[in-house]
């Protein structure tokens, strides 16, 4: 019998190879993909988030758990698609124009994927127009903007303006984050949401993906 507790712990401890192998094992034994996700993966990532909030986990541990979660999801994903189960949402993510920092953005992208979102990662130093095109071509419901420099934060504003000018602003929820970004700034530029850290960004994306 596949041991979902061990899978849970493998993700929590950031053991990607073991997490992937245990998921394969569970699937081979006929466990339903959704059961594996709901009984092992989601609780594991919730615990990762809790440990991060309590400062028991830091960025390296988050990265490792997100990587293990991704590895565990790999064999499950095609089965979800085949059975018509939709992702939690589709997110276009990138670090804004002028800013080359990407660890925070990568972390959020990995945690969103771990949280069941389909993520379109545009990378770092992304011009506003590229976000517009990605929204138009992917039909994403969420745009996640990252900035690590106060000097590049105005690029978040111009990206939102570009979405507006292209007529797609009302179709998407824009969320912003990065070390110097604040709720006050998010409100000032008309973003739909702000998150102080990577784990809270997943909860925020979930909240904004709910139908109104």
């Amino acid at each position: 019998m596949a041991d979902l507790r061990t899978l849970h712990d493998a993700i929590l401890e950031g053991n990607a190879k073991q997490a992937a192998a245990l998921t394969q094992e569970a699937l081979a034994e006929g466990l339903a993909p959704l059961d594996i996700i709901q009984q092992a993966m989601v609780p594991a990532m919730d615990e990762v988030g809790r440990r991060f909030e309590c400062e028991e986990y830091f960025v390296p541990e988050l990265l490792l758990s997100a990587r293990a979660m991704k590895a565990a999801l790999e064999p499950v994903r095609p089965l979800l698609v085949a059975s018509g189960i939709q992702p939690a949402g589709r997110v276009v993510i990138g670090t804004v124009k002028g800013d080359l920092h990407d660890i925070g953005k990568n972390l959020v992208a990995a945690l969103l994927e771990g949280g069941g979102f389909e993520v379109i990662d545009l990378g770092a130093d992304v011009p506003a127009q590229k976000f517009v095109e990605a929204v138009q071509s992917s039909g994403a419901g969420i745009v996640a903007l990252s900035a690590l420099l106060t000097v590049t934060m105005p690029s978040m504003k111009s990206t939102i303006e570009a979405l507006d000018h292209a007529g797609v602003r009302s179709r998407v929820k824009v969320i912003v984050g990065g070390a110097p970004v604040t709720q006050q700034f998010a409100d000032q530029i008309g973003a739909d949401g702000y998150s102080e850290n990577a784990t809270a960004a997943v909860a925020l994306a979930r909240r904004l993906s709910q139908p109104a």
Binding site: A16, L63, L64, A179
Partner: peptide, 28 residues
């Protein structure tokens, strides 16, 4: 690079491998 890197004391590869193991250390 990251403000919340209180535990990211060293970026050196050997230090990361020692702390997180070969595979995870290289990944980090």
């Amino acid at each position: 690079q990251l403000s919340s890197g209180a535990q990211m004391g060293s970026e050196s590869l050997p230090a990361l491998i020692e702390r997180y193991g070969e595979d995870n250390g290289r990944y980090l």
